[in-house]
């Protein structure tokens, strides 16, 4: 059953009624909102103003927008300097380059310095499409979640992106937020709860838990709905904060279902699912199946073709659910 407290859109499974908006738009809107609330907020961008939607902030607050040129490493250190002084900088680029290229600068000058720099990584995942492997960040969650002090958000739709961006501005430390390029369903609402470090149960169920993050949460819901017809009761949790992890919600759910499938548009190695099973291996070991990219690079293609080819769509999730249920019985 859909969790009524999650306040998802009423016509959740009616594709004709769902708005399609890329999560990066939520970042752009969130930047403006955060900028209105707090004048310490500044936005730095490395020659990708429109792609990252940072241009909306530039239009509204030109004096607080800083153009970096193609220089992601410098962008991280300039932001660290500004935060050292007392500003709240957001740095915008593609995830492949920030945090892909400037990882060490983020580690030392931002995280080790413990400064409130917020890293916005756009065009993450293979759904970037035709640009190909070089631009499809599949390692960014892994990179960021292993840095002490870093908060990591992977919002599931444009509305949640905006909330995560605004929340990031208020957090005292460094934050990484991951965005996608493609338009994806907007299925949460303004009223959907968003709390840093709290996973949200979008659908309740008893047989198996699906934990997902990013736009694939919608695919997880589709899988759950289809499995209902086969009398499989699936709990779907939107695990938007990879770090700090909501151990309580996750452990409580798997104590009930005793089987887990994790779903993300990222390398299986080191990503959201990895973070969860590192914890569960100690707290409550159960059979797990993981959906994600299996230790390979992306490639050119249409976003939907690639999601299908890389096994990230709901039929693949359904198969993983059946597999884990079988293992649970054995």
């Amino acid at each position: 059953m859909i969790n009524q407290k999650a306040k998802l859109v009423p016509d959740l499974f009616d594709k004709s009624k769902l708005e399609m908006i890329p999560t990066r738009n939520g970042y752009g809107k969130g930047l403006v909102q955060a900028g209105e609330k707090d004048e310490r907020v500044v936005v730095l961008c490395a020659d990708l103003a429109e792609s990252t939607r940072s241009h909306w902030f530039r239009e509204k607050f030109p004096e607080r927008y800083i153009e970096m040129g193609v220089a992601e490493q410098n962008m991280a250190t300039i932001a660290a300097g500004m935060a050292n002084y007392g500003k709240i900088p957001f740095i915008s680029s593609y995830a492949a380059f920030s945090p892909g290229r400037n990882n060490e600068q983020i580690r030392t000058t931002i995280s080790l310095n413990n400064l409130p720099v917020k890293i916005g990584g756009a065009h993450a995942g293979i759904s970037v499409g035709p640009d190909g492997a070089t631009h499809q960040a599949l390692e960014d969650i892994a990179l960021m979640r292993v840095q002490p002090r870093m908060t990591v958000f992977v919002p599931c739709d444009a509305i949640e992106s905006q909330k995560a961006t605004v929340a990031a501005a208020r957090l005292p430390g460094p934050v990484y937020i991951r965005f996608a390029r493609e338009k994806t369903p907007v299925f949460t609402t303004e009223k959907t709860p968003f709390k840093v470090g709290r996973a949200e149960i979008f659908k309740t169920g008893d047989d198996v838990t699906i934990l997902s993050c990013g736009p694939l949460v919608y695919e997880a819901l589709l899988a759950a709905k289809n499995l209902e017809k086969e009398k499989v009761s699936v709990e779907v949790i939107n695990n938007h904060t990879i770090k700090p992890q909501d151990e309580k919600t996750i452990v409580n759910s798997v104590k009930k279902t005793k089987a887990l499938v994790t779903v993300e548009e990222h390398q299986v190695m080191g990503g959201m699912g990895s973070a969860v099973i590192e914890m569960l291996a100690k707290k409550y070991p159960i059979p797990v199946e993981m959906i994600g990219v299996e230790d390979r690079f992306g490639e050119s293609g249409k976003p939907d073709e690639l999601l299908e080819k890389f096994g990230l769509t709901h039929p693949h999730i359904m198969r993983a659910v059946k597999k884990v249920l079988k293992r649970k019985k054995d």
Binding site: G132, T134, E299
Partner: peptide
């Protein structure tokens, strides 16, 4: 170009098309 399965990736890849020498796209 840029289609699924192509050797002509959106950004060139050394392993896909002999002769492009290096994979590039990320600048610098």
């Amino acid at each position: 170009l840029r289609k699924l399965g192509t050797r002509l990736q959106g950004h060139p890849e050394r392993e896909k098309l002999p002769g492009v020498e290096t994979t590039s796209g990320p600048l610098g």
